[in-house]
Design a protein around this nucleic acid. Sequence first.
DNA 1: CTCCTCTTAAAGGTGCTACCTTTGGCGATG
DNA 2: CATCGCCAAAGGTAGCACCTTTAAGAGGAG
Lengths: 238, 238
Amino acid sequence: MGVGFEPGAEVRHSTVLDALGSEITSGELPAGHVLTLDRIQERFGVSRTVARETMRILESMGLVTSRRRVGITVQPREAWNVFDPRVIWWRLSGSGRPAQLRSLTELRIAVEPLAASAAARSASAAQRDHIVHLAAEMRALGEAGRLDDFLELDVAFHTLLLRASGNEMFGALADVVAVVLRGRTQLGLMPHQPVPEALDLHEEAARAVRAGRGQDAEAAMRKLLAEVRDAMQPLWDR
Amino acid sequence: MGVGFEPGAEVRHSTVLDALGSEITSGELPAGHVLTLDRIQERFGVSRTVARETMRILESMGLVTSRRRVGITVQPREAWNVFDPRVIWWRLSGSGRPAQLRSLTELRIAVEPLAASAAARSASAAQRDHIVHLAAEMRALGEAGRLDDFLELDVAFHTLLLRASGNEMFGALADVVAVVLRGRTQLGLMPHQPVPEALDLHEEAARAVRAGRGQDAEAAMRKLLAEVRDAMQPLWDR
DNA sequence: CTCCTCTTAAAGGTGCTACCTTTGGCGATG
DNA sequence: CATCGCCAAAGGTAGCACCTTTAAGAGGAG
Protein backbone atom coordinates (compact mmCIF):
# COMPACT_ATOMS: atom_id res chain seq x y z
CA MET A 1 0.00 0.00 0.00
CA GLY A 2 3.01 2.20 0.25
CA VAL A 3 1.69 4.48 2.88
CA GLY A 4 3.29 3.81 6.11
CA PHE A 5 3.16 1.26 8.67
CA GLU A 6 5.81 3.13 10.48
CA PRO A 7 7.03 0.55 12.90
CA GLY A 8 6.98 2.26 16.23
CA ALA A 9 4.27 4.77 15.53
CA GLU A 10 1.93 2.47 17.28
CA VAL A 11 -1.76 2.12 16.93
CA ARG A 12 -3.00 5.03 18.95
CA HIS A 13 -0.91 7.60 17.22
CA SER A 14 -1.74 6.42 13.77
CA THR A 15 -5.45 6.26 14.51
CA VAL A 16 -5.58 9.86 15.59
CA LEU A 17 -3.17 10.95 12.87
CA ASP A 18 -5.15 9.27 10.17
CA ALA A 19 -8.48 10.59 11.30
CA LEU A 20 -7.36 14.18 11.68
CA GLY A 21 -5.14 14.05 8.62
CA SER A 22 -7.92 13.01 6.34
CA GLU A 23 -10.42 15.36 7.88
CA ILE A 24 -8.08 18.27 7.30
CA THR A 25 -7.02 17.35 3.79
CA SER A 26 -10.59 16.67 2.76
CA GLY A 27 -11.66 20.09 3.94
CA GLU A 28 -13.98 18.68 6.56
CA LEU A 29 -11.90 20.65 9.05
CA PRO A 30 -11.41 23.88 7.14
CA ALA A 31 -8.44 26.21 7.38
CA GLY A 32 -8.74 28.35 10.47
CA HIS A 33 -10.60 25.72 12.46
CA VAL A 34 -9.22 25.43 15.95
CA LEU A 35 -8.60 22.21 17.83
CA THR A 36 -7.46 21.83 21.39
CA LEU A 37 -5.55 19.01 23.00
CA ASP A 38 -8.34 18.51 25.48
CA ARG A 39 -10.92 17.91 22.81
CA ILE A 40 -8.65 15.53 20.97
CA GLN A 41 -8.00 13.56 24.14
CA GLU A 42 -11.66 13.34 24.77
CA ARG A 43 -12.72 12.51 21.25
CA PHE A 44 -10.24 9.69 20.75
CA GLY A 45 -9.87 8.59 24.32
CA VAL A 46 -6.13 9.04 24.33
CA SER A 47 -3.77 10.64 26.75
CA ARG A 48 -2.27 14.04 26.45
CA THR A 49 1.04 12.52 25.38
CA VAL A 50 -0.44 10.86 22.34
CA ALA A 51 -2.44 13.95 21.45
CA ARG A 52 0.62 16.14 21.67
CA GLU A 53 2.88 13.89 19.70
CA THR A 54 0.31 13.49 17.00
CA MET A 55 -0.11 17.24 16.79
CA ARG A 56 3.64 17.58 16.41
CA ILE A 57 3.53 15.28 13.42
CA LEU A 58 0.64 17.15 11.84
CA GLU A 59 2.49 20.36 12.50
CA SER A 60 5.58 19.04 10.79
CA MET A 61 3.45 18.17 7.77
CA GLY A 62 2.23 21.75 7.66
CA LEU A 63 -1.38 20.81 8.30
CA VAL A 64 -1.68 22.70 11.59
CA THR A 65 0.18 25.17 13.73
CA SER A 66 -0.14 25.37 17.45
CA ARG A 67 0.02 28.48 19.55
CA ARG A 68 -0.37 29.02 23.21
CA ARG A 69 -3.65 30.23 24.50
CA VAL A 70 -5.13 29.82 21.01
CA GLY A 71 -4.99 26.13 20.35
CA ILE A 72 -4.16 24.14 17.27
CA THR A 73 -5.14 25.87 14.07
CA VAL A 74 -5.75 24.15 10.76
CA GLN A 75 -3.57 25.64 8.06
CA PRO A 76 -4.61 26.56 4.51
CA ARG A 77 -3.65 24.25 1.70
CA GLU A 78 -0.69 26.35 0.61
CA ALA A 79 1.10 25.49 3.81
CA TRP A 80 0.76 21.72 3.46
CA ASN A 81 3.72 19.55 2.56
CA VAL A 82 1.94 18.23 -0.48
CA PHE A 83 4.82 15.91 -1.28
CA ASP A 84 4.45 14.04 1.96
CA PRO A 85 3.27 10.55 1.01
CA ARG A 86 0.66 10.54 3.75
CA VAL A 87 -0.83 13.80 2.59
CA ILE A 88 -1.02 12.43 -0.93
CA TRP A 89 -2.64 9.29 0.33
CA TRP A 90 -5.29 11.12 2.34
CA ARG A 91 -6.18 13.34 -0.53
CA LEU A 92 -6.42 10.42 -2.90
CA SER A 93 -8.72 8.56 -0.54
CA GLY A 94 -10.88 11.54 0.17
CA SER A 95 -12.89 14.03 -1.77
CA GLY A 96 -9.88 15.73 -3.31
CA ARG A 97 -9.12 12.75 -5.48
CA PRO A 98 -9.61 14.20 -8.97
CA ALA A 99 -7.59 17.34 -8.22
CA GLN A 100 -4.85 15.28 -6.64
CA LEU A 101 -4.70 12.88 -9.56
CA ARG A 102 -4.45 15.75 -11.94
CA SER A 103 -1.56 17.33 -10.03
CA LEU A 104 0.22 14.03 -9.85
CA THR A 105 -0.22 13.26 -13.50
CA GLU A 106 1.18 16.63 -14.46
CA LEU A 107 4.09 15.94 -12.19
CA ARG A 108 4.67 12.60 -13.87
CA ILE A 109 4.61 14.27 -17.27
CA ALA A 110 7.25 16.66 -16.06
CA VAL A 111 9.51 14.19 -14.33
CA GLU A 112 9.38 10.81 -15.99
CA PRO A 113 10.79 11.78 -19.40
CA LEU A 114 13.78 13.41 -17.76
CA ALA A 115 14.17 10.47 -15.42
CA ALA A 116 14.28 8.17 -18.42
CA SER A 117 16.92 10.31 -20.02
CA ALA A 118 18.96 10.30 -16.82
CA ALA A 119 18.54 6.57 -16.46
CA ALA A 120 19.98 6.09 -19.94
CA ARG A 121 23.07 7.83 -18.61
CA SER A 122 23.26 6.44 -15.10
CA ALA A 123 21.62 3.03 -14.84
CA SER A 124 23.70 0.01 -13.87
CA ALA A 125 24.12 -2.86 -16.29
CA ALA A 126 21.70 -4.98 -14.30
CA GLN A 127 19.10 -2.24 -14.29
CA ARG A 128 19.38 -1.84 -18.06
CA ASP A 129 18.71 -5.49 -18.65
CA HIS A 130 15.96 -5.58 -16.08
CA ILE A 131 13.99 -2.77 -17.60
CA VAL A 132 13.99 -4.37 -21.03
CA HIS A 133 12.90 -7.60 -19.45
CA LEU A 134 10.03 -5.86 -17.67
CA ALA A 135 8.82 -4.25 -20.87
CA ALA A 136 8.80 -7.61 -22.63
CA GLU A 137 6.85 -9.21 -19.83
CA MET A 138 4.39 -6.36 -19.89
CA ARG A 139 3.70 -7.09 -23.52
CA ALA A 140 3.12 -10.76 -22.82
CA LEU A 141 0.73 -10.19 -19.93
CA GLY A 142 -0.93 -7.25 -21.60
CA GLU A 143 -1.74 -9.21 -24.71
CA ALA A 144 -2.97 -12.05 -22.56
CA GLY A 145 -5.34 -9.63 -20.88
CA ARG A 146 -4.09 -10.34 -17.36
CA LEU A 147 -4.73 -6.88 -16.09
CA ASP A 148 -3.78 -7.20 -12.44
CA ASP A 149 -0.44 -8.81 -13.10
CA PHE A 150 0.11 -6.24 -15.80
CA LEU A 151 -0.47 -3.47 -13.29
CA GLU A 152 2.20 -4.81 -10.97
CA LEU A 153 4.69 -4.93 -13.81
CA ASP A 154 3.75 -1.43 -14.84
CA VAL A 155 4.47 -0.24 -11.32
CA ALA A 156 7.77 -2.10 -11.32
CA PHE A 157 8.72 -0.58 -14.66
CA HIS A 158 8.15 3.01 -13.65
CA THR A 159 9.69 2.48 -10.24
CA LEU A 160 12.83 1.06 -11.72
CA LEU A 161 13.10 3.87 -14.21
CA LEU A 162 12.80 6.53 -11.55
CA ARG A 163 15.22 4.87 -9.20
CA ALA A 164 17.75 4.19 -11.95
CA SER A 165 17.82 7.88 -12.81
CA GLY A 166 20.42 8.44 -10.14
CA ASN A 167 18.45 11.42 -8.87
CA GLU A 168 17.12 10.67 -5.44
CA MET A 169 14.32 13.18 -5.77
CA PHE A 170 13.06 11.41 -8.86
CA GLY A 171 13.50 8.13 -7.05
CA ALA A 172 11.42 9.37 -4.16
CA LEU A 173 8.50 9.84 -6.52
CA ALA A 174 8.34 6.14 -7.28
CA ASP A 175 5.87 5.40 -4.50
CA VAL A 176 3.72 8.27 -5.61
CA VAL A 177 3.66 7.09 -9.19
CA ALA A 178 2.75 3.63 -7.97
CA VAL A 179 -0.24 5.05 -6.15
CA VAL A 180 -1.36 6.88 -9.26
CA LEU A 181 -1.06 3.81 -11.43
CA ARG A 182 -3.04 1.70 -9.02
CA GLY A 183 -5.60 4.44 -8.54
CA ARG A 184 -6.10 4.74 -12.26
CA THR A 185 -6.89 1.07 -12.54
CA GLN A 186 -9.23 1.18 -9.56
CA LEU A 187 -11.12 4.03 -11.13
CA GLY A 188 -11.64 2.07 -14.29
CA LEU A 189 -9.63 4.41 -16.45
CA MET A 190 -7.67 1.57 -18.01
CA PRO A 191 -8.82 -0.15 -21.18
CA HIS A 192 -9.59 -3.86 -20.81
CA GLN A 193 -6.56 -4.64 -22.85
CA PRO A 194 -3.61 -2.25 -22.77
CA VAL A 195 -3.41 -0.32 -26.02
CA PRO A 196 -0.68 -1.60 -28.34
CA GLU A 197 0.89 1.85 -28.62
CA ALA A 198 1.53 1.90 -24.88
CA LEU A 199 3.21 -1.49 -25.05
CA ASP A 200 5.33 -0.33 -27.94
CA LEU A 201 6.36 2.80 -26.12
CA HIS A 202 7.33 0.97 -22.96
CA GLU A 203 9.56 -1.28 -25.01
CA GLU A 204 10.97 1.58 -27.00
CA ALA A 205 11.84 3.50 -23.85
CA ALA A 206 13.37 0.43 -22.25
CA ARG A 207 15.57 -0.31 -25.25
CA ALA A 208 16.68 3.29 -25.46
CA VAL A 209 17.64 3.25 -21.79
CA ARG A 210 19.59 0.06 -22.22
CA ALA A 211 21.42 1.45 -25.22
CA GLY A 212 22.17 4.70 -23.46
CA ARG A 213 20.13 6.73 -25.97
CA GLY A 214 18.85 9.36 -23.58
CA GLN A 215 17.02 11.49 -26.11
CA ASP A 216 15.10 8.54 -27.48
CA ALA A 217 14.17 7.34 -24.03
CA GLU A 218 12.93 10.80 -23.16
CA ALA A 219 10.89 11.07 -26.34
CA ALA A 220 9.28 7.67 -25.82
CA MET A 221 8.30 8.52 -22.27
CA ARG A 222 6.91 11.82 -23.39
CA LYS A 223 4.65 10.09 -25.88
CA LEU A 224 3.67 7.47 -23.35
CA LEU A 225 2.65 10.09 -20.82
CA ALA A 226 0.75 12.07 -23.40
CA GLU A 227 -1.43 9.00 -23.78
CA VAL A 228 -1.79 8.71 -20.05
CA ARG A 229 -2.90 12.30 -19.86
CA ASP A 230 -5.46 11.81 -22.60
CA ALA A 231 -6.80 8.74 -20.86
CA MET A 232 -7.23 10.61 -17.58
CA GLN A 233 -8.63 13.78 -19.07
CA PRO A 234 -12.27 12.72 -18.62
CA LEU A 235 -11.69 12.63 -14.89
CA TRP A 236 -11.26 16.35 -14.53
CA ASP A 237 -13.01 17.67 -17.58
CA ARG A 238 -16.32 17.44 -15.88
CA MET B 1 14.47 32.10 4.48
CA GLY B 2 11.67 29.78 3.68
CA VAL B 3 12.82 27.10 6.03
CA GLY B 4 10.74 27.10 9.05
CA PHE B 5 10.49 29.00 12.10
CA GLU B 6 7.51 26.90 12.79
CA PRO B 7 5.66 29.12 15.16
CA GLY B 8 4.86 26.92 18.07
CA ALA B 9 7.62 24.39 17.68
CA GLU B 10 9.39 26.28 20.35
CA VAL B 11 13.05 26.66 20.97
CA ARG B 12 13.94 23.39 22.63
CA HIS B 13 12.39 21.21 20.00
CA SER B 14 13.93 23.05 17.12
CA THR B 15 17.38 23.00 18.67
CA VAL B 16 17.36 19.26 19.04
CA LEU B 17 15.64 18.76 15.70
CA ASP B 18 18.12 20.89 13.86
CA ALA B 19 21.15 19.31 15.42
CA LEU B 20 20.06 15.75 14.85
CA GLY B 21 18.56 16.48 11.46
CA SER B 22 21.74 17.89 10.08
CA GLU B 23 23.88 15.24 11.64
CA ILE B 24 21.81 12.54 10.03
CA THR B 25 21.51 14.13 6.61
CA SER B 26 25.20 14.91 6.52
CA GLY B 27 26.06 11.31 7.23
CA GLU B 28 27.73 12.15 10.51
CA LEU B 29 25.20 9.79 12.07
CA PRO B 30 25.19 6.99 9.52
CA ALA B 31 22.29 4.70 8.68
CA GLY B 32 21.96 2.02 11.29
CA HIS B 33 23.32 4.17 14.09
CA VAL B 34 21.19 3.81 17.20
CA LEU B 35 20.14 6.65 19.48
CA THR B 36 18.25 6.36 22.72
CA LEU B 37 15.95 8.83 24.38
CA ASP B 38 18.12 8.79 27.45
CA ARG B 39 21.20 9.86 25.58
CA ILE B 40 19.31 12.59 23.77
CA GLN B 41 17.94 13.92 27.05
CA GLU B 42 21.39 13.95 28.48
CA ARG B 43 23.15 15.45 25.49
CA PHE B 44 20.75 18.34 25.01
CA GLY B 45 19.61 18.76 28.57
CA VAL B 46 15.96 18.39 27.68
CA SER B 47 13.16 16.41 29.21
CA ARG B 48 11.92 13.12 27.93
CA THR B 49 8.86 14.76 26.42
CA VAL B 50 10.88 17.05 24.23
CA ALA B 51 13.15 14.22 23.19
CA ARG B 52 10.18 12.04 22.32
CA GLU B 53 8.32 14.65 20.37
CA THR B 54 11.41 15.56 18.42
CA MET B 55 11.95 11.90 17.59
CA ARG B 56 8.39 11.71 16.32
CA ILE B 57 9.09 14.55 13.95
CA LEU B 58 12.29 12.96 12.70
CA GLU B 59 10.40 9.71 12.31
CA SER B 60 7.73 11.40 10.26
CA MET B 61 10.45 12.78 7.98
CA GLY B 62 11.73 9.25 7.48
CA LEU B 63 15.10 9.98 9.05
CA VAL B 64 14.72 7.50 11.91
CA THR B 65 12.49 4.71 13.11
CA SER B 66 11.97 3.81 16.69
CA ARG B 67 11.44 0.36 18.08
CA ARG B 68 11.04 -0.91 21.57
CA ARG B 69 14.01 -2.35 23.28
CA VAL B 70 16.16 -1.36 20.30
CA GLY B 71 16.12 2.40 20.35
CA ILE B 72 15.95 4.95 17.60
CA THR B 73 17.63 3.84 14.41
CA VAL B 74 18.90 6.15 11.71
CA GLN B 75 17.38 5.25 8.37
CA PRO B 76 19.19 4.99 5.04
CA ARG B 77 18.83 7.81 2.56
CA GLU B 78 16.21 6.00 0.48
CA ALA B 79 13.76 6.29 3.33
CA TRP B 80 14.08 10.04 3.77
CA ASN B 81 11.34 12.41 2.69
CA VAL B 82 13.70 14.24 0.40
CA PHE B 83 11.00 16.73 -0.55
CA ASP B 84 10.63 17.94 3.00
CA PRO B 85 11.91 21.51 3.00
CA ARG B 86 13.87 20.97 6.19
CA VAL B 87 15.65 17.95 4.79
CA ILE B 88 16.56 19.94 1.70
CA TRP B 89 17.79 22.76 3.85
CA TRP B 90 19.98 20.56 6.01
CA ARG B 91 21.52 18.88 3.02
CA LEU B 92 22.20 22.19 1.34
CA SER B 93 23.91 23.54 4.43
CA GLY B 94 25.92 20.42 5.02
CA SER B 95 28.35 18.32 3.11
CA GLY B 96 25.81 17.00 0.63
CA ARG B 97 25.46 20.36 -1.05
CA PRO B 98 26.70 19.59 -4.57
CA ALA B 99 24.65 16.42 -4.89
CA GLN B 100 21.59 18.17 -3.54
CA LEU B 101 21.99 21.10 -5.91
CA ARG B 102 22.31 18.74 -8.81
CA SER B 103 19.13 16.89 -7.90
CA LEU B 104 17.27 20.12 -7.44
CA THR B 105 18.44 21.57 -10.70
CA GLU B 106 17.35 18.47 -12.58
CA LEU B 107 14.01 18.78 -10.86
CA ARG B 108 13.73 22.40 -11.94
CA ILE B 109 14.52 21.41 -15.51
CA ALA B 110 11.73 18.88 -15.36
CA VAL B 111 9.12 21.02 -13.69
CA GLU B 112 9.52 24.66 -14.61
CA PRO B 113 8.88 24.40 -18.34
CA LEU B 114 5.64 22.54 -17.71
CA ALA B 115 4.71 24.97 -14.98
CA ALA B 116 5.18 27.82 -17.45
CA SER B 117 2.96 26.08 -19.92
CA ALA B 118 0.32 25.51 -17.28
CA ALA B 119 0.58 29.10 -16.13
CA ALA B 120 -0.14 30.25 -19.66
CA ARG B 121 -3.39 28.36 -19.38
CA SER B 122 -4.33 29.05 -15.77
CA ALA B 123 -2.86 32.32 -14.53
CA SER B 124 -5.15 35.12 -13.43
CA ALA B 125 -5.12 38.41 -15.28
CA ALA B 126 -3.21 40.06 -12.46
CA GLN B 127 -0.62 37.33 -12.45
CA ARG B 128 -0.12 37.65 -16.20
CA ASP B 129 0.59 41.34 -15.92
CA HIS B 130 2.75 40.88 -12.89
CA ILE B 131 5.06 38.38 -14.48
CA VAL B 132 5.73 40.60 -17.46
CA HIS B 133 6.40 43.44 -15.09
CA LEU B 134 8.87 41.34 -13.13
CA ALA B 135 10.75 40.35 -16.26
CA ALA B 136 11.07 43.97 -17.29
CA GLU B 137 12.37 44.98 -13.90
CA MET B 138 14.85 42.15 -14.01
CA ARG B 139 16.25 43.55 -17.20
CA ALA B 140 16.60 47.01 -15.70
CA LEU B 141 18.33 45.85 -12.54
CA GLY B 142 20.37 43.24 -14.36
CA GLU B 143 21.77 45.74 -16.81
CA ALA B 144 22.49 48.11 -13.96
CA GLY B 145 24.52 45.35 -12.30
CA ARG B 146 22.54 45.40 -9.06
CA LEU B 147 22.97 41.74 -8.38
CA ASP B 148 21.29 41.37 -5.02
CA ASP B 149 18.12 43.15 -6.04
CA PHE B 150 18.20 41.15 -9.22
CA LEU B 151 18.29 37.94 -7.24
CA GLU B 152 15.18 38.86 -5.31
CA LEU B 153 13.33 39.57 -8.52
CA ASP B 154 14.54 36.33 -9.98
CA VAL B 155 13.12 34.49 -6.98
CA ALA B 156 9.86 36.38 -7.31
CA PHE B 157 9.65 35.55 -11.00
CA HIS B 158 10.08 31.82 -10.60
CA THR B 159 7.85 31.72 -7.54
CA LEU B 160 5.06 33.46 -9.34
CA LEU B 161 5.37 31.18 -12.32
CA LEU B 162 5.17 28.06 -10.22
CA ARG B 163 2.26 29.28 -8.16
CA ALA B 164 0.36 30.53 -11.18
CA SER B 165 0.54 27.09 -12.74
CA GLY B 166 -2.54 26.08 -10.81
CA ASN B 167 -0.80 22.87 -9.78
CA GLU B 168 -0.22 22.92 -6.07
CA MET B 169 2.63 20.45 -6.29
CA PHE B 170 4.46 22.76 -8.65
CA GLY B 171 3.58 25.63 -6.37
CA ALA B 172 5.06 23.83 -3.41
CA LEU B 173 8.40 23.75 -5.16
CA ALA B 174 8.64 27.53 -5.15
CA ASP B 175 10.45 27.66 -1.82
CA VAL B 176 12.84 25.02 -2.99
CA VAL B 177 13.62 26.87 -6.18
CA ALA B 178 14.20 30.01 -4.17
CA VAL B 179 16.77 28.20 -2.07
CA VAL B 180 18.55 26.98 -5.18
CA LEU B 181 18.64 30.42 -6.74
CA ARG B 182 20.04 31.97 -3.60
CA GLY B 183 22.51 29.15 -3.15
CA ARG B 184 23.77 29.58 -6.66
CA THR B 185 24.52 33.22 -6.06
CA GLN B 186 26.19 32.48 -2.74
CA LEU B 187 28.42 29.95 -4.40
CA GLY B 188 29.54 32.48 -6.96
CA LEU B 189 28.05 30.65 -9.90
CA MET B 190 26.41 33.77 -11.26
CA PRO B 191 28.15 36.05 -13.73
CA HIS B 192 28.74 39.59 -12.48
CA GLN B 193 26.19 40.82 -14.91
CA PRO B 194 23.33 38.52 -15.90
CA VAL B 195 23.84 37.26 -19.42
CA PRO B 196 21.63 39.01 -21.99
CA GLU B 197 20.22 35.71 -23.23
CA ALA B 198 18.85 34.96 -19.80
CA LEU B 199 17.16 38.34 -19.64
CA ASP B 200 15.70 37.80 -23.09
CA LEU B 201 14.39 34.40 -22.16
CA HIS B 202 12.75 35.61 -18.98
CA GLU B 203 10.94 38.26 -20.97
CA GLU B 204 10.04 35.86 -23.71
CA ALA B 205 8.58 33.39 -21.24
CA ALA B 206 6.68 36.12 -19.43
CA ARG B 207 5.13 37.48 -22.61
CA ALA B 208 4.18 34.00 -23.73
CA VAL B 209 2.49 33.36 -20.41
CA ARG B 210 0.59 36.61 -20.61
CA ALA B 211 -0.56 35.87 -24.14
CA GLY B 212 -1.58 32.34 -23.23
CA ARG B 213 0.96 30.80 -25.60
CA GLY B 214 1.79 27.73 -23.56
CA GLN B 215 4.16 26.08 -26.01
CA ASP B 216 6.25 29.21 -26.37
CA ALA B 217 6.42 29.71 -22.64
CA GLU B 218 7.52 26.13 -22.21
CA ALA B 219 10.19 26.43 -24.89
CA ALA B 220 11.58 29.63 -23.41
CA MET B 221 11.82 28.09 -19.95
CA ARG B 222 13.48 25.04 -21.38
CA LYS B 223 16.18 27.18 -22.97
CA LEU B 224 16.56 29.23 -19.84
CA LEU B 225 17.07 26.17 -17.71
CA ALA B 226 19.51 24.68 -20.18
CA GLU B 227 21.66 27.72 -19.49
CA VAL B 228 21.24 27.29 -15.77
CA ARG B 229 22.37 23.70 -16.06
CA ASP B 230 25.43 24.66 -18.06
CA ALA B 231 26.31 27.31 -15.52
CA MET B 232 26.10 24.85 -12.64
CA GLN B 233 27.85 22.00 -14.39
CA PRO B 234 31.30 22.90 -13.00
CA LEU B 235 29.97 22.26 -9.53
CA TRP B 236 29.55 18.55 -10.01
CA ASP B 237 31.96 17.84 -12.80
CA ARG B 238 34.83 17.70 -10.43
C1' DC C 1 32.64 -30.82 24.81
C1' DT C 2 29.45 -28.70 21.65
C1' DC C 3 25.20 -27.29 20.21
C1' DC C 4 20.52 -26.37 20.81
C1' DT C 5 16.44 -24.87 23.24
C1' DC C 6 14.25 -22.68 27.00
C1' DT C 7 14.00 -19.39 30.61
C1' DT C 8 14.79 -15.08 32.44
C1' DA C 9 16.45 -10.45 33.18
C1' DA C 10 17.33 -6.04 31.50
C1' DA C 11 16.89 -2.31 28.21
C1' DG C 12 14.24 0.98 26.16
C1' DG C 13 10.20 2.70 23.85
C1' DT C 14 4.81 3.36 24.79
C1' DG C 15 1.36 5.35 27.26
C1' DC C 16 -0.49 7.66 31.24
C1' DT C 17 -1.04 11.10 34.96
C1' DA C 18 -0.05 15.09 37.61
C1' DC C 19 1.85 19.48 38.02
C1' DC C 20 4.16 23.82 37.10
C1' DT C 21 5.41 27.69 33.64
C1' DT C 22 4.62 30.83 29.97
C1' DT C 23 2.08 33.25 26.67
C1' DG C 24 -1.36 35.82 24.55
C1' DG C 25 -6.47 36.90 23.84
C1' DC C 26 -9.94 39.46 25.84
C1' DG C 27 -12.70 41.81 28.92
C1' DA C 28 -12.83 45.24 32.44
C1' DT C 29 -11.39 49.49 34.15
C1' DG C 30 -9.42 54.05 34.23
C1' DC D 1 -8.56 54.29 23.87
C1' DA D 2 -4.86 52.63 26.46
C1' DT D 3 -3.70 49.71 30.32
C1' DC D 4 -4.10 45.99 33.45
C1' DG D 5 -5.12 41.65 34.99
C1' DC D 6 -7.41 37.20 34.45
C1' DC D 7 -7.27 32.66 32.72
C1' DA D 8 -7.37 29.21 28.96
C1' DA D 9 -4.40 26.47 26.57
C1' DA D 10 0.02 25.01 25.02
C1' DG D 11 5.01 24.29 26.61
C1' DG D 12 7.72 21.75 29.50
C1' DT D 13 9.12 18.53 33.47
C1' DA D 14 8.85 14.34 36.32
C1' DG D 15 7.97 9.78 37.26
C1' DC D 16 5.40 5.43 36.97
C1' DA D 17 3.52 1.09 35.04
C1' DC D 18 3.61 -1.70 31.04
C1' DC D 19 4.95 -4.24 26.92
C1' DT D 20 8.44 -6.05 23.52
C1' DT D 21 12.41 -7.62 22.22
C1' DT D 22 16.92 -8.96 22.65
C1' DA D 23 20.50 -11.41 24.59
C1' DA D 24 22.64 -13.70 28.26
C1' DG D 25 22.58 -17.72 30.97
C1' DA D 26 21.05 -22.36 32.29
C1' DG D 27 20.11 -26.88 31.38
C1' DG D 28 19.74 -30.86 28.61
C1' DA D 29 20.77 -33.83 24.51
C1' DG D 30 23.94 -35.84 21.46
